[in-house]
Amino acid sequence: MADTLTNHVSARGLRAPRFSLRQREAIEAWLFVSPTVVGFLLFFLGPLVAVVYFSLTEWNLLTQQSTFVGIDNYVDALSRNPDFWHVLRNSFVFALGLVPLNMSLALMLALALSRPFRGVVFFRTIFFAPVVTSAVAWAIVWKFLLQGEAGAVNQLLAVVGIDGPNWLREPDWAMVAVIVTRVIKMVGLNMILYIAALQAIPRDYEAAARLEGASNWQIFRMVIWPLLAPTTLVIFVITMIGSFKVFDHIYLMTGGGPENGTLVLAFYIYEQGFKFFNVGYASALAMIMFVIVLALTVVQMILRRRDMQ
């Protein structure tokens, strides 16, 4: 009824009833999505196609000369340039360090803060505060705090009798430092997502399990954790992608050093493309990054689907 009415009204508006109702709706819908589609084609899909082409050229950013070289850049990265594997390793170390640390801390905080008690808002506010802070500010401040002997962190450690390392000057410690400071910066987001998921779990489930004499751990393992699975997947994907694209944090805290110990893929792409003018090589690296992120996401989704069945 209403549909015919609209059709009638707007048909009169258009004067010529050339389109069926369904066609009209489709045209209107495409008008609605047109800004998004145009932007998507221009700033996303176009560039994504372009980066494939770029990756097959040798292209100097400064002289602006490019020649087609086929898969040379990929061969270069995978077999000739020793830096690449080192960078890839760093990226995976960063992700493997960050994702579990972030997710387990987020879950623990969420479990502690999902039920009301005095101070719960206070703590949530505090743990979330770094999320709204700019990564630049965060990195700048931590860079100061983590200085050698004069740094506040080491001064604090000295109080409890620990002789802290020169955090940002030793490759392994620098990696630890960027991972941990990044986790502190971002864990609040995952904590909130977990809290929302925990609060959506009906209390009866837990009560029922308790009646059957389940321990806290058993309740968590058998009831809560499986129910959190969808959230865990979302959090995992977000956190993992986030850990591969980390740039500002590295750029400001370590600049990829010391001894290339924190040189990760995103930073390496920037360096190759804009500092050494190797547009082609940087594009090949970008493609590799794209494939890695895509593959990890797909694998996780397949695993999850199998899990459900």
Partner: peptide
């Protein structure tokens, strides 16, 4: 199809497209 395309955009870090976007 549009949904699928848009969804895939969520997965792609901006570092991947920064170079072509520079030329754009």
């Amino acid at each position: 199809l549009l949904m699928l395309f848009l969804l895939s955009a969520l997965m792609v870090p901006e570092e991947v497209t920064i170079i072509p976007n520079f030329f754009l």
